[in-house]
Design a binder for these strands. Structure first.
Lengths: 251, 251
DNA sequence: CGGCAAATTGACTCCACTCAAAGGAGGTGG
DNA sequence: CCACCTCCTTTGAGTGGAGTCAATTTGCCG
């Protein structure tokens, strides 16, 4: 289990299950849908939220092809979304941290296009999209936030187009994680990777051996310190020098 | 000028300028925002539409960094969207055909993230997004369509993740164009590329020489017939065999 | 301790890039 | 109308980075 992802963001009950707290008291706060909403609006939104039980590592939220009805906000943990091609090969699309929304690619087709699986013990809030859309019609703050979130996802995906060397891609990957963790109140310098090398490699369109080699090289150069899944960034500037030729910095 | 893109889709006036026709009489019809709207709703939407003069090849619609206010629907022609990194290098994000919307990545940031330039003589309809969003709040069909369009763009971008061999990527590129042209009433087997090899290569993360070589090989194998920018697909099945290991087929 | 999966490291191969040069197409001006 | 110029495209030769295959090491868990 990935401690960095789990422990702090959501209050836990003594038995380890996340407390059934309301959106207004959720620690995600500004990182989630209610961002622009007034208290009264939040309670209306709240009626749509389905806080299911925690997900175990390896447990799926949805599978490609299943009929679409809900999007989901990651509350705790880390979710991997991926496509499977005709040959059965997996293509990792992204890793989603708390506050990020999954399922947006399925709105238009009536069925999920990708699959989503929990990488560690996670928790999510599911929202029926038809109801959400309906509510957004009468709640401009929610409407704006939804457009914002979707636009953000589009921008994010576009930025990942700048493919170049293995070093650049991996540096970019680390910086993205660092930025997102720090925004969620964790250290930007030290965090735990929730995903195995194979998934990182797949996501970056590299072989996992190549990822290993890149990590080793960066280790030797004193840029990072990686032990298994524990990452410490030693020289963020040098790391940024490597990724700098790619402008994915505004995500 | 790209004839395939320009001539048929929009009625022209004798002087060559596109006629100032209304959305309800626009030949894009089902391919554009009014898709789910009633006649009365279309006329309300229409008040937001800014049909500017035709764009010449090389003319920009917006530049990255400029303050965001409008999205745009391509009406005629072909628009290229691209990022520029810190080193000044261009990264082509996509080529947009009539009915497709550009600027969606800028909604969340207040400024355009990418730039958009016309590849041939094009025409667009611009819409102030704040007004559009406002209207969507009271017009569920428009709201659904906007969510749909953005979701579609997300799905589209995700699908392009499956990077593999140069042959696969180019086959996928051709199939995507073929599909989109045929949906717009053109031949799926024969069309004109609006963009130079350099842009295709950049978009596919290849060198333009590699694109040339791939084209030559596919030519020799009798899969396609390419003369300059004129493409004819001779063996769509074989082409699909090449791209098949990638599931971008549902775009 | 043993068995298993993940991760690392090495050796070799190959695909796509770079550099370089030669054809074409289209536009401009004489 | 043609010559010239420029840009796009094609083709060739050589190089390098990432993939593949294979062996080893490491950590985990029963």
């Amino acid at each position: 289990m990935n401690e960095a992802c789990g422990a702090k963001l959501t209050p836990m009950q003594p038995d380890g299950r996340p407390a059934r707290i309301s959106c207004s008291r959720c620690s995600l706060g500004e990182l989630c849908l209610p961002r622009r909403l007034a208290a009264e609006e939040i309670s209306r939104l709240e009626t749509l939220v389905d806080r299911s039980r925690p997900l175990h590592a390896g447990e799926h939220i949805y599978i490609a092809g299943a009929p679409f009805s809900t999007i989901a906000v990651v509350r705790v943990g880390c979710i991997k979304s991926y496509l499977v091609n005709e040959a059965g090969e997996e293509q990792v699309l992204d890793f989603h941290l708390p506050g990020e929304i999954i399922g947006l690619d399925a709105i238009h087709g009536g069925a999920y296009l990708s699959s989503a699986v929990s990488l560690d013990t996670s928790a999510i809030c599911q929202l029926n999209f038809a109801q959400l859309s309906n509510l957004a019609g009468s709640m401009s703050g929610l409407l704006e936030e939804l457009f914002d979130v979707m636009s953000h996802r589009i921008a994010n995906l576009e930025q990942t187009f700048c493919n170049s060397s293995a070093e650049q891609r991996f540096a970019l990957f680390l910086e993205s994680l660092s930025r997102r963790y720090s925004r969620r109140g964790y250290s930007a310098r030290e965090f735990t990777l929730a995903m195995p090398r194979r998934d990182i490699a797949n996501y970056l369109n590299l072989a996992s051996e190549t990822v290993s080699r890149v990590i080793s090289r960066m280790n030797d150069q004193g840029l990072i310190e990686v032990k298994r899944r524990q990452v410490r960034i030693l020289d963020a500037d040098a790391l940024h020098d490597i990724s700098r030729h790619c402008d994915a910095s505004m995500i």
